[in-house]
Design a protein around this nucleic acid. Structure first.
Lengths: 225, 225
DNA sequence: CAATCTCTACGTATTACTACCTAGAATAGA
DNA sequence: TCTATTCTAGGTAGTAATACGTAGAGATTG
């Protein structure tokens, strides 16, 4: 327990942690490891979300290190409550679920980070420090799960559009909002040629309108917003 | 400067860093600070994205710490190239831009993290360690910018377009690829009215073409892909 | 080398969109 | 209540896009 009036860590204040997990063993293990770390102090433990909220209200932890799956009140609900009732507390999720949905939900519920249980204790400590400083932390597996779609969505599959290069080029320019005349100028070809391309494109893609073309181009990442 | 052949850090291999920034002063400062950190080694520097790619190909850094705004080839483009050409290198963006668009784009371009230039050197080092271990790091400001909408994203915010409800409706239908006649039928109004709406919309948004309208609608979440 | 594909370009007619107006009815706000 | 806004609708003209053709030059390929 913290004492007052004597010399504590001078410059860096200790990060006060509330540990929440329904497995006593996990609780103990992590607690022991964290306690051995200077600058980190485990000020309390809880077995479920309900308890966590109560203890947090009393202890005012800096960081709440919490599991997701728990009885009584799971990490998701608990995170919601933390966001509303005790926004000062930074919630760091410690989970074994690598599921994207989970992670996104946790973020939306206000969690500041998400580490998988397979991380090293060093990494866990780094995560704690990060969220304490206001940052966001995702461990490798989590960030992968979280951003895999995100990042792949850049140029995912270039699914064979059936369009020729030239047609794609024309489509791209049209989708960007250029009129035929401008496209023609840009590609240094006749307006009629552009029209021909345009027609062929629409025929190939079975699209009728200009707006449809733009939508198509966006869907297929020929252009970006 | 690094030496070879003598005792380096034994268990933990050194994190080899390539620093990229177009400001020599920044380069020097960060480099000096990082060099003082055990476990981190600045193996090279570059002034722009182009150089960064070349040097990286040669030096094979673990982490590329890179600015966004640079001449010749900016961080965004460079990150793209890294993703494609040297995916082993983890790209950590060091930027002063707190803009959400920037951050999202960087992630989509394959960056493993994004730290604002106002972070402490301790935090920067933590970020480096994080991305090196495969994690994702966002500093406080960045994660805030990144997830503020995300968290709210239950209803993906509708920024005031200045359009009336009816105009939005028309715009939506147009953006979906409907021609005026279809819009008119859908809303049970005259084609002329749709045309009027269309004109007003274009005037309000300062957009000239139909394709532009679609793009606008997509950008502003009036419709989704 | 003939067949195919791609890119280029034009003709003609029709339809759609655009620009720039006016204007009435309904509604919301000061 | 007066006013501004919104939604409705139209006139007139010009510009752009579409539909449906044809067709030559150049590259690719079986």
């Amino acid at each position: 327990m913290p004492h007052i009036g004597t010399q504590d860590n001078p410059a860096v204040s200790t990060i006060r942690i509330l540990l929440v997990d329904d497995h006593p063993l996990v609780l103990e293990g992590i607690s022991a490891r964290l306690e051995s770390e200077p600058g980190i102090e485990v000020i309390g433990q809880a077995n479920n979300g309900q308890q966590a909220l109560e203890k947090a209200a009393e202890l005012k932890p800096d960081v709440v290190l919490m599991d997701i799956s728990m009885p009584v009140m799971n990490g998701l609900e608990a995170a919601e409550h933390f966001k509303n009732d005790q926004p000062e507390a930074r919630v760091l999720i410690l989970s074994m679920h690598e599921n994207r949905e989970y992670i996104v939900k946790m973020i939306q519920s206000g969690a500041a980070g998400y580490v998988l249980k397979d991380v090293s204790s060093d990494e866990l400590i780094r995560a704690i420090q990060t969220v304490h400083q206001g940052g966001t932390y995702f461990s490798a597996g989590a960030s992968e799960a979280l951003f895999s779609e995100f990042s792949k969505s850049d140029q995912p599959e270039k699914p064979d559009t059936g369009l020729t290069k030239r047609e794609e080029m024309v489509l791209k320019l049209i989708a960007e909002g250029k009129v035929n005349k401008e496209v023609a100028r840009a590609l240094d070809i006749s307006v009629r040629t552009v029209e021909t391309h345009r027609q062929n494109i629409k025929q190939k893609l079975n699209i009728q309108t200009a707006a449809g073309l733009t939508k198509y181009a966006l869907e297929h990442n020929l252009i970006s917003l």
